[in-house]
């Protein structure tokens, strides 16, 4: 484990904690896309099936369990919690997330390293994670006035992806036979999706004003 990987994982953890904090203490999920959260739950559920088949480290297992638990908890809050579900912007969150799932699945059936059940699901989760943020970005753009917590949440998610790219570069030069084309390309696509958001986030931060995305 190198410093970039650790920083990436911590940003990811922190972004989820921010979101849970917002939902649990303020009892609001305004500006949060349920579509994106459902996609993440599906991403983790299909990727971390390997909890049962292989052991890497206690750190890996605990993180995987946390990501699984937190993603399903957030979806539960937004769908079923008496107070939280009322703050959900259902009419704005209209992205057809089903249209992302099917193409990712077909792509995983066609492009993978090995044609086995777990391997295809793992690949599917990589493709799906790359585009899972789209409903959230669309919702942010529609809401215009983004509240701070939601903005920070997306920022730390993007930071997580950026650190992972540094981690791959580092590992490529320090380890032998470290090639992961599928992971790299989907990771690059995913990070690129944040570029526009980052630009406006940094701009609003420098001018110390509220984050506003252009229509």
């Amino acid at each position: 484990m190198n410093i970039f990987r650790l920083a990436g994982d911590m940003s990811h953890l922190f972004s989820i904690l921010l979101l849970l904090l917002k939902i649990h203490t303020i009892k609001s999920c305004a500006g949060v896309s349920l579509k994106t959260q459902e996609l993440y739950a599906l991403v983790f559920a299909t990727r971390y099936l390997d909890i049962f088949t292989g052991y890497i480290s206690l750190y890996n297992t605990l993180m995987k369990m946390f990501f699984l638990w937190s993603s399903f908890t957030i979806v539960w809050y937004m769908r079923y919690h008496n107070v939280v579900r009322r703050s959900y912007d259902k009419d704005q969150d209209t992205f057809r997330h089903y249209f992302l799932i099917l193409p990712c699945f077909i792509l995983a059936l066609l492009v993978h390293e090995k044609f086995t059940f777990l391997e295809v699901l793992w690949t599917f989760s990589l493709y799906l994670e790359a585009v899972a943020i789209l409903p959230q970005l669309v919702l942010l753009q529609r809401t215009r006035n983004v509240d701070n917590l939601t903005g920070h949440y997306v920022f730390f998610l993007g930071a997580y992806r950026s650190f992972y790219i540094l981690n791959w570069i580092y590992r490529y030069f320090t380890e032998q036979n470290y090639y992961k084309w599928i992971t790299w390309i989907s990771g690059l696509v995913q990070t690129a999706l944040y570029a526009d958001f980052f630009y406006y986030y940094v701009k609003s931060w420098r001018n110390s004003e509220r984050l506003q995305l252009p229509a």
Partner: peptide, 10 residues
Amino acid sequence: AKELCKKDEL
């Protein structure tokens, strides 16, 4: 056959 990379990342 090419060995698959160990999936040690999250």
